[in-house]
Amino acid sequence: MQLDKQQLPPEKFERVVIDTDSAERISKPSLSFWQDAWLRLRKNKAAIVSMVVLVLLVLMALVGPHLNGRSGDVQNLRHANLPPKIPGIEKLGIFNGVGELGGQKLDLYEVKKVDEYYWFGTDGLGRDLFTRLWEGTQISLLIAFIAALIDVVIGVAYGGISGYFGGRTDDVMQRVVEILIGIPTLIVVILMILIMEPGITAIIIAISITGWIGMSRIVRAQILKFKGQEFVLASRTLGASHNRIITKHLLPNILGIVIINTMFTIPSAIFFEAFLSFIGIGLQPPAASLGTLINDGYKVMEFQPYVLLFPALVISILMIAFNLIGDGLRDALDPKMKD
């Protein structure tokens, strides 16, 4: 706090005119909501890794069944119950075709005189488990994606109409939802599946029939929140049509939350399909889904644990990936949002 003793040249003390605008120069480039969200998502390593893993799994589900030229439903009893054998890795002492037979550890490929390699082994009917695994993944993902899509379409439409138009429409629609929400999903799914012909369509319908309710409630709450805000009121005052308000103002604002919710709908659909197939009322043999494969594997778990291992791994990784991506998106799109 002492007086400045240093000698400063007088010209330093000339007055300058500051352009106050320049003081407000924006130092960072402005980012759109989605660019900003992407930047935040990119920092989330778990979500990025999950995305890569997910892309790989989807690719495998598409090309996997054709990789070794075997069909998933061709039975070859001579090649039944072979453990996994993968060229190259076999020398490491795993996936070398060794399994138990009559209490002894033997290379079952030698015993049964099989020269081919079954990467993930075969089941009791001699079907190639590698092909079946990816076929099953394909079916499970297909069911999950379609079910999620239906949930989104119905949920957004129902919640949107209910929230946007309000009044009596909202009253009636919400009374319906209040009753439906009381019915446990599991019960509805099981009952629906019982009365329909077993198959993919039945499972999709069963999963979707109450699946949209959660989405519709979230969408309605969001619409109610935004519809009262000034920017929508302003737009309405300026004579914007319903159509314009919905597409230009409301939908872009709820898009984030819809995407996040979809990310959690997909794994729950995967789970329900597998669950139904596991207890035996989902897909019927010989069709393969992750659920039926796990069910098959569970039955022979004691003797051929590898039959269970691969589908169990794939379904777990799929579920983890979707959940991590969902979490990552939630943090990126709305850091304050909790549920």
Binding site: I294, Y298, L308, I320, N323, D327
Partner: peptide
Amino acid sequence: AILGISIPSFVFASLLQY
């Protein structure tokens, strides 16, 4: 927690049993 939410109960139960 992510594992607990993601891994289906029947997979986890089978593994425990095995």
